[in-house]
């Protein structure tokens, strides 16, 4: 009876293993359903990927559609994508980062092996990652020593392994079949990697993969306006190409409104929606249009712009900033008169408002929930001054450096950090 039971168990295990092997997650980069095509932006990204391997940073405010755009372009069959979404908290610690990088790379070469003719042998290259992972796991399991845990050097070795195997892969494509037109690509938002050494190691190896060895493209996508400052501090920025994704143009928004939104509204309510008025409020931010129209339909047309959730949130945020700033008892924010002292005192912060001691803490509502909306970096009067200027009809923007000279870097960066203003380093594609 006992041996029968063991035999049955072993059989079940084998069967389960076989099943597991068949349900590998596939290429996760698929097109977003209902994607609204944005020609200029797509062409810019395609052109970048069509050229020499480069390190590209894709900027754009949150919910501007960066991910949708990348997914649309990268789901085309000629691209092989290694995708890391660092907004997911699992990347915060080194062991998860290592494991995720390693499994992704293994998957990448397995995909090449199974999807491309003549590349079957790359199945073996995929095993390199698997066995590296097993070695690391064994090392940790065998030892109670704290030195046995996953270190930056493990990530470095992984990147090196990847570099060597990619080089092999590309040599083959040049000499024999020439079919590997693939661009490997990383989509990163390094919000949560807290280890300075690891981040530096990743960035350095990405520079090697792109600039030096010309093996693949690397794309970083971020909505952090201070990301550029951060990359500059790490001596990476000068090697990067910048693309800025902005909101849609008025013409695009009109098309979206006419073709995608209006058909969702019951006919009797359509008369209450007027494009120009809505455009004044929501501009080219399609996500806000979508939310508004959904709420509008749900409320049977009883919703005006001033009671829409995005308006209420913006309105509340401004009021909270003004009230908190005017009532802040301590740490009197610098006035325009004492810029010099405040600059010296907070030079490090002003380079990146959320730069922690590790130097890599990027502003993130996820990692910094308690600071979420409020900071006493500016006075209520300073904010009101900026607001009144920006609402004048002929003032689409304020020059950053000029305002910094006037109010102090800390105050201006505080408004950006406080999610009132966006800092635009270069003009958007559209």
């Amino acid at each position: 009876t006992e041996s029968n039971r063991l035999l049955a168990e072993a059989r079940r295990e084998i069967e389960e293993q076989r099943e597991r092997a068949q349900i590998r997650p596939k290429h996760t980069f698929t097109r977003l359903p209902g994607f609204f095509p944005r020609k200029a932006e797509m062409q810019t990204i395609e052109r970048t990927l069509g050229g020499e391997p480069a390190f590209t940073v894709l900027f754009g405010a949150s919910s501007v559609g960066k991910t949708a755009l990348l997914r649309e372009v990268l789901s085309q069959p000629q691209f092989h994508v290694l995708h890391f979404d660092l907004r997911i908290a699992g990347f915060a610690d080194l062991p998860s980062l290592y494991t995720r990088l390693s499994t992704q790379m293994e998957q990448y070469f397995e995909d090449i092996a199974s999807n491309m003719e003549g590349y079957e042998e790359f199945q073996k290259e995929a095993w390199c990652f698997k066995h590296d992972r097993i070695n690391v796991q064994n090392r940790i399991a065998d030892s109670n020593d704290s030195r046995a845990r996953i270190r930056t050097s493990d990530v470095a070795r992984l990147m090196e392994l990847f570099q060597v195997i990619s080089a092999l892969c590309f040599q083959k494509s040049n000499s024999q079949t020439n079919i590997l037109q693939s661009s490997l690509l990383k989509y990163l938002e390094p919000v949560l990697i807290q280890s300075t050494d690891t981040m530096k190691c990743l960035l350095d190896s990405m520079l090697v993969l792109t600039k030096q060895d010309k093996l693949c493209h690397v794309i970083h996508a971020t909505s952090d306006p201070f990301y550029q400052t951060w990359l500059r501090q790490l001596n990476v920025m000068q090697h990067c190409k910048i693309i800025n994704i902005g909101d849609c143009t008025k013409a695009e928004t009109r098309t979206f409104f006419r073709d995608h939104l209006i058909p969702r509204v019951p006919e009797r309510l359509r008369g209450r929606l007027e494009f120009e008025g809505l455009y004044e409020a929501f501009g080219g931010k399609l996500a806000h249009w979508q939310d508004f129209i959904t709420d509008f339909v749900n409320s049977h047309g009883q919703l005006d712009i001033r009671s829409s959730s995005h308006f209420l949130q913006a309105h509340a945020l401004l009021n909270l900033h003004i009230i908190h700033s005017s009532q802040a008892a301590t740490g009197a924010p610098p006035g325009p008169g004492d810029n010099d002292t405040s600059y010296t005192a907070s030079a490090r912060e002003s380079l990146h408002p959320n730069l922690g001691p590790a130097g890599f803490k990027i502003y993130s509502p996820i990692s910094n929930p308690q600071q979420g909306y409020y900071s006493a970096d500016f006075t209520a009067m300073q904010l009101l001054k900026v607001m009144s200027r920006l609402t004048k009809p002929d003032t689409p923007y304020l020059p950053y450096f000029m305002l910094c000279r006037e109010l102090g870097v800390r105050a201006v960066d505080g408004m950006v950090k406080g999610r009132v203003l966006d800092l635009r380093w270069i003009e958007p594609v559209s």
Partner: peptide
């Protein structure tokens, strides 16, 4: 020339006008 500061969203500019009026 140089970096520009704009309201973080179009609706933020809209809300700014409203708040300025209130103040």
């Amino acid at each position: 020339v140089g970096p520009k500061l704009i309201p973080i969203t179009p609706i933020m500019r809209y809300a700014m006008a409203e708040v300025i009026e209130e103040y």
